[in-house]
Design a protein around this nucleic acid. Structure first.
Length: 796
RNA sequence: GCCUAAGUGGCGGAAUAGGUAGACGCACAGGACUUAAAAUCCUGCGAGAUUCAACCCUCGUGUCGGUUCAAGUCCGACCUUAGGCACCA
């Protein structure tokens, strides 16, 4: 009788007692670093979605180990952040304690699933020994001029009482609570991410990310090449710049628009327009980003009374203000070409502004309009195509010193301050005399105070501001009284470099030694959710590139392959959630069916990269398969060679399982093992070696039961053995069934020797009774014969 | 609107390089074993026409075209769904 509970516990204990998965940095073995995104240890425990990706990478890790690699497969906790803080506030406990409890649950759940993590390297981002180095790295960024404080309008969530990054407030909605975000002026720590835009783009060449992942990064960076054009303001000696990707349409620019926040507005607005302009500016400042974008079909704006001079034809064109021009992109000002830009067109129509087409085919209104016509109404670029016109215009602008080629990026600097308690304190001190001063590195970690009060304030200050004992300190430079920065770092900080720490997690001299990082080289295989492939990956790459430029890491790109998994949905095909009542708890499944069954099912359930609904029926099918594996043991006879008639299928299966696990086709790896087991089942007896190879191939996915059965054969543990090899010549059947088509339609099949001569194939095809029927009274035009594949007879 | 991914039986999904569509599993139906149940084993299982039955035949991978001896796979146009971005000049 096989009691999976006892068996699974036994082997989990064996791995723990023997420290089977503990890896050393000090070995000649080739390194292989497999990383899964470390989870946020929420109160609801491990999700079956976690089980899917952890099992997949576990299978890869176990396979690679058997192939002789020194495999680093670590696990840790990304435990700072709002949910833990809010949970703690609600339940009147310290977030530290809540986190500790959740980590314990998560870890236990993971261990029950038999993941081969090296637990000796475990850490949490909330450990002072870890965040000491997050703070230390921030100080390096500060010292290298990559961190600065700026007063900027920020996204403020009145509900969560915190600043949100542009990313966290996408669409004007708070990512955490879903409420509307408003704009608020605040002094914030920033990281100069925009400076790295080009490097982050370039660096993608040194990665093996999936194309779609690279695209996500490229879109986020948002590079666009165009020109900066300088416009004189009529009657003054002032100028302002606009950014455009279509400087070739300059002859069609009939007005300019400044964003409501543009610094020149007050100076250029004429007396009679002042009132109107000020009113409009005020209106805009009250609008949240959401309102501004929501109303994007209905353009608003006011005239300043001022005029700009179009440099190419010296025409006076009016300067307007409108919030459809964003202050944060380009120069915060545009030239408007209403004939060829939808937004400018809408605006011009509404306010009766001039529209001059400068491209053949009329203006944007016309149905057959294309934006790539030849130039008209454009003096020296008439008749040119887009590319030529842009180039000619660029040299004209440079010659006349009123413009130049310019590259712009959507990506902005990273707002690095959060007004929360539960994050890494930013290690900076403000002194009235010396300004901002970094905390002495020797004083790190700068610990979070152990207090009971950490609720957010209404003023927008961090809860830390209320803890005067902590805030009041002395200036590291002059020694006078000073105050600590009370903002903390965003959740993204700790996860931007955790993969480096896993390479050398107990180092108390450095965040990780150069030797350790050189040995492991990089993350070979990084698995995570699609939702993190844009931002987290970008932040992590930025962080690493900054460290690289300070000679603190050996490579500019420390992550090689990035893959992502699909979600496990509820049985009703919807996202699992408590409110929908479709949540599956992995613990319940492990209790009832065992960890091996759950692991096997999650690998078999579907395409790894696609979302898949949960099905308890299918899970039961996987249990049956494991029972079949156990039953097969009764057929084993003590022989140390493959059964002659199983040799081909065994070689085939070794090849396929290996290939599939290395290529994320876990579902077909499982199905090929099922086919092998069915082949065994058809026989009265199988050899010990037949059985061993099946157990070994299944071991990465179902490690407990396979170890148990293998032990009962009297063998040493699979985990210490080597991955079976296959003989390529023996992966092809001796006899092959091939199809015979007549005019592309299947009319029969024949069984032939592998690599049979074309002539023989044709002859046999023509002898087939059903084929003959179709050939009756017909003329054969030609016969296409592809050995080992198909014969197609073309008739008239 | 833009970008990305995906549309194949009742369901999850297979199908190197264009070469027998539906592997493997689930569900379902019939049967064997059993006093019975569970477990297990055997058979069938895309749709349709025809037949005592089988073979055979027709249609079939979101839609419409195209390329090819041959298309789930390649090309063109479109439709639907999911996810992401969105006044980015």
């Amino acid at each position: 009788m096989y009691e999976f509970k006892k068996i699974e516990e036994k082997w989990q204990k064996y791995w723990e007692d023997n420290q089977t998965f503990k890896v050393s940095n000090d070995t000649d073995k080739k390194p292989y670093y497999i990383l899964v995104e470390f989870p946020y240890p929420s109160g609801s425990g491990l999700h079956v979605g976690h089980v899917r990706s952890y099992t997949a990478q576990d299978a890869l890790a176990r396979l690679k180990r058997m192939q002789g690699y020194n495999v680093l497969y670590p696990m840790g906790w990304d435990a700072f952040g709002a949910p833990a803080e809010q949970y703690a506030i609600k339940n009147h406990i310290h977030p530290k304690d809540a986190v500790q409890k959740n980590i314990k649950t998560f870890k236990k759940q993971m261990q029950r699933l038999g993941f081969s993590f090296d637990w000796s390297r475990e850490f949490s981002t909330t450990d002072p020994n870890y965040y000491k180095w997050t703070q230390w790295q921030f100080l390096q960024f500060y010292k290298h001029n990559m961190a600065y404080k700026a007063t900027i309008p920020v996204n403020w969530c009145p509900n969560c009482k915190t600043v949100l990054s542009n990313e966290d407030a996408a669409g004007g909605v708070c990512e955490r609570c879903g409420g509307y975000v408003v704009q608020k002026e605040k002094s914030q720590w920033m990281l100069k991410m925009s400076k790295y835009a080009e490097d982050l783009l370039e660096g993608l060449k040194d990665t093996n990310f999936h194309e779609k992942v690279k695209l996500g990064q490229i879109n986020w960076i948002g590079k666009s090449t165009g020109a900066e054009v300088e416009f004189k303001i009529d009657g003054t000696n002032k100028t302002f710049k606009v950014f455009t990707t279509r400087c070739d349409t300059l002859f069609g620019a009939t007005y300019c628009v400044l964003s409501p926040e543009h610094k020149y507005i007050d100076e250029i607005t004429t007396e009679e327009h002042k009132k109107e302009v000020n009113l409009y500016k005020e209106e805009c400042s009250k609008k949240s980003e959401l309102e501004r974008t929501e109303l994007n079909k209905n353009k608003t704006g006011v005239f300043t009374g001022a005029y700009a001079i179009n440099p190419v034809n010296n025409k006076k064109i009016p300067i307007w203000i409108s919030d459809y021009v964003l202050a944060t992109y380009g120069t915060g000002a545009i030239m408007a070409v209403p004939a060829h830009d939808t937004r400018d067109y809408e605006f011009a129509k509404k306010f009766n502004l001039e529209i001059i087409p400068v491209l053949e085919g009329g203006n944007i209104e016309k149905e057959a309009y294309t934006e790539d016509g030849l130039h008209i109404n454009s003096d020296f670029i008439n008749g040119l195509n887009k590319t030529d016109a842009i180039n000619k215009m660029l040299s004209w602008l440079e010659e006349h010193k009123c413009g130049k080629k310019q590259v712009n990026y959507k990506m902005r600097d990273w707002i690095f301050s959060r007004q929360r308690f539960w994050g890494e304190p930013i290690p900076m001190i403000y002194c009235d005399e010396c300004g901002w001063q970094p905390v002495d590195e020797a004083d790190l970690p700068l610990l979070l105070p152990d207090v009971a009060e950490y609720e957010p304030t209404d003023t927008g200050e961090s809860p830390l501001a209320k803890i005067t004992d902590w805030v009041n300190t002395t200036c590291p430079k002059c020694g006078k009284k000073a105050k600590r920065e009370t903002d903390t770092m965003p959740n993204w900080a700790g996860s931007s470099w955790y993969f480096l720490r896993f390479m050398d997690p107990h180092n108390d001299k450095e965040f990780a030694s150069m030797d350790a990082m050189k040995y492991w080289n990089r993350v070979d295989w990084y698995n995570g959710g699609m939702e993190h492939t844009a931002r987290h990956l970008l932040y992590a790459r930025f962080w690493v590139q900054m460290l690289y430029n300070m000679n603190l890491v050996p490579k500019k790109e420390m992550i090689w392959t990035r893959v992502s998994h699909g979600m496990v949905l509820g049985a009703n095909n919807e996202k699992m959630s408590k409110s929908k009542g479709n949540v599956i708890n992995p613990d319940d499944i492990v209790d009832e069916y065992g960890a091996d069954t759950l692991r096997l099912y999650e690998m078999f359930m579907g395409d790894y990269e696609q979302d898949v609904p949960w099905s308890t029926d299918s899970l039961k099918g996987c249990k049956r398969f494991i029972d079949k594996i156990i039953r097969l043991k009764e057929k084993v006879v003590n022989e140390n060679n493959y059964s002659k008639d199983l040799e081909i299928i065994i070689n085939k299966t070794i090849k396929k399982v290996e290939h599939d696990i290395l290529n994320m086709s876990y579902n077909t790896a499982v199905s090929s093992l099922m086919i092998l087991a069915n082949n065994y089942d058809d026989k009265d007896k199988i050899t010990k070696k037949d059985y061993e190879v099946l157990l070994t191939l299944l071991n990465p996915i179902a490690p407990h039961i396979t170890e148990q059965l293998n032990e009962e054969l009297g063998n040493k543990p699979i985990v210490n053995s080597t991955w079976p090899t296959y003989d390529e010549d023996k992966t092809i059947d001796e006899y092959i069934e091939i199809g015979i088509q007549v005019n592309g339609k299947l009319r029969g099949t024949i069984i032939v020797n592998k690599d049979e001569e074309k002539e023989v194939l044709q002859q046999k095809a023509l002898e087939n009774d059903n084929v003959k029927k179709h050939l009756l009274d017909k003329e054969i035009v030609k016969i296409i014969t592809i050995p080992n594949r198909i014969v197609n007879i073309v008739i008239k």
